[in-house]
């Protein structure tokens, strides 16, 4: 089977600044992968390239063997690191919007999760608390049967209870053939759910290995290793 995500000599330049340089990467199916690195290391750039929100300066990025386009967007479910909905829309209208455009969106699943979270579907997004807004976004993203979920800082601004719920949501919704790519700098919180970690440093991959390998080899957690690698 083709890797779900593949980068070949992927480079993205902003002016004279290399946000990513010469990244080679291949993600297997059925894994939960952590994309780790300090701010400005190129995590979001990589994610935006995978979603076709940026055009590579050089090199290629392929989703399921295809350059980002309508065909890859059908199978990628993406959660940006900030709000990306029209705040004037009601939650139920956002669900209708997703159902209209994504064939793999399950309204039933979304309803179940929104009910569990006690979110009022007749409210406008703006009228919800910031935490609730983030939950609505995650629920919609995770209610798709995607091949690749790309979650950019999904646990950034939420409280610990919500964080547990989010991790649980991710764990119970992804299927065995789908891959989840989670970018974060809060490693301790998600270390246990990851198979694999990729460390990004100044736009380059400095480590690409499994969590248990790190623990066996270094005798320390990914978080501890991260602190060591990225020591200021």
């Amino acid at each position: 089977m083709r890797p779900i995500l593949e980068c070949q000599k992927l480079t993205k330049k902003y002016g004279n600044f290399f946000a990513l340089s010469n990244v080679d990467l291949s993600l297997e199916r059925g894994k939960i992968v952590g994309l780790l690195g300090p701010n400005g290391s190129g995590k979001t750039t990589l994610i935006k390239l995978a979603n076709g929100l940026l055009t590579p300066t050089e090199g290629h990025i392929m989703i399921n063997g295809l350059e980002p386009g309508p065909a890859t967007k059908k199978i990628v479910s993406y959660l940006p690191d900030h709000s990306f909905f029209n705040g004037h829309m009601k939650v139920k209208h956002l669900m209708a919007y997703y159902a209209d455009f994504y064939r793999n969106f399950s309204t039933e699943r979304a309803l179940k999760m929104l009910d569990a979270l006690e979110i009022d579907k007749d409210k406008r997004l703006n009228a919800l608390s910031k935490g609730a807004q983030e939950k609505v976004q995650l629920v919609l993203v995770m209610s798709r049967d995607a091949d690749l979920y790309i979650l950019d800082e999904p646990i950034g601004g939420v409280d610990p209870a919500a964080r547990d719920y989010i991790l649980r949501t991710i764990l119970s919704n992804y299927s065995e053939n789908s891959t989840v790519l989670i970018s974060t700098h809060l490693i301790t919180d998600i270390e246990q759910v990851l198979d694999h970690v990729i460390f990004l440093q100044n736009g380059q991959i400095s480590l690409n290995t499994s969590v248990d390998e790190i623990r066996t080899e270094y005798g320390k957690s990914v978080d501890a290793l991260f602190r060591e690698v990225f020591k200021c």
């Binding site: 979603n51 076709g52 929100l53 309508p70 967007k73 940006p80 900030h82 990306f84 909905f85 455009f101």
Partner: peptide, 16 residues
């Protein structure tokens, strides 16, 4: 704007 992150990740081409 930020909404573009949703619009551009719909299974739709830029030309559409």
């Amino acid at each position: 704007s930020r909404e573009g992150y949703l619009s551009w990740t719909l299974p739709v081409s830029g030309i559409q």
